Each structure stands twice: as structure tokens, then as C-alpha cells.
Simulated scan of single mutants.
Amino acid sequence: MAGAIVLGLSTGAFAATGEFDDMCAMGATMGKKVKTDCSINAQIEGKTYCFGNEAAKTEFMKDPAGNIAKANENMSKKNM
């Protein structure tokens, strides 16, 4: 499935609006709320995912499909 994901990386001069209410996508994967300004982000299948720092983005991009699934599961929980 990872091969089906089209990756387009972007770090623009302006902040983007991303999935998970602009929370860090890697934070959401780990079940944590980490607010970002979305200046560090990645485009995956036409959606923008925000990150708190470059290390979080690098870790997330090791398995974007799996991490998106985990983040979606965590974000759907009432405590997130």
C-alpha cells in the first residue's frame, strides 16, 4: 500500500492548514495533541499533514499509511 501513496513534500514560507486540526501528525499517531503552526508539513494523497518539527516529520514518513491510520484511530477517540 505504501507504494500507492503519492508523496509530495512541501515546506512553504507560509503556514498551511492541515489534517487533525493542525495538530502534529506524529503526535496524533502517538495519541498526543501537539499544536503546530503547520510550517513543517507534507502533502500525502492531496492532504496536508503538519508536524511539530523535522524529526517528527522524518519519523512519520517512514510509514505514512500506517501512521495516518493510527492517527485517525487516535483522533476518533473521545480523549483526543
Rank of each mutant, 00 (worst) to 15 (best):
Lys78Arg: 08
Met23Asn: 15
Ile44Met: 00
Gly18Met: 05
Gly18Leu: 07
Lys57Pro: 11
Gly3Leu: 15
Lys47Asp: 01
Gln43Arg: 01
Asn72Asp: 11
Val6Leu: 06
Cys38Leu: 09
Ile68Cys: 01
Glu54Trp: 14
Lys35Thr: 14
Cys38His: 06
Ser39His: 06
Met30Lys: 13
Ala71Ser: 11
Met61Ala: 10
Lys77Gln: 08
Met30Gly: 02
Ser39Lys: 12
Asn79Gly: 05
Lys32Gly: 02
Asp22Leu: 07
Gly66Met: 07
Phe20Ala: 03
Phe14Gly: 11
Phe51Trp: 05
Met26Cys: 03
Gly66Ile: 04
Gly31Ile: 01
Lys57Cys: 08
Phe20Ser: 04
Lys57Ser: 08
Phe20Tyr: 11
Asn41Met: 00
Ala69Ser: 11
Met61Val: 08
Ser76Thr: 12
Thr48Gly: 03
Ala13Asn: 11
Ala42Val: 07
Ala56His: 15
Thr36Met: 07
Lys78Ser: 13
Gly8Phe: 08
Cys50Phe: 10
Ile68Trp: 00
Thr58Ala: 15
Pro64Leu: 04
Lys77Trp: 07
Cys38Gln: 07
Glu59Ala: 09
Ser10Glu: 08
Lys62Pro: 07
Phe20Trp: 05
Met30Leu: 14
Ala16Asn: 05
Asp22Phe: 00
Thr36Cys: 10
Ala55Leu: 15
Ala4Gly: 12
Lys47Tyr: 00
Lys33Asn: 15
Glu19Ser: 09
Phe60Lys: 06
Asn72Cys: 00
Phe20Leu: 09
Asn72Val: 01
Thr58Trp: 06
Asp21Lys: 14
Gly31Thr: 02
Ala56Cys: 12
Gly46Ala: 01
Ile5Leu: 11
Phe51Leu: 06
Asn41Cys: 03
Tyr49Pro: 01
Met80Ser: 14
Asp21Pro: 09
Asp22Ala: 09
Thr36Glu: 12
Ala42Phe: 01
Ser39Tyr: 03
Gly12Arg: 04
Leu9Trp: 13
Phe20Lys: 02
Thr17Gly: 10
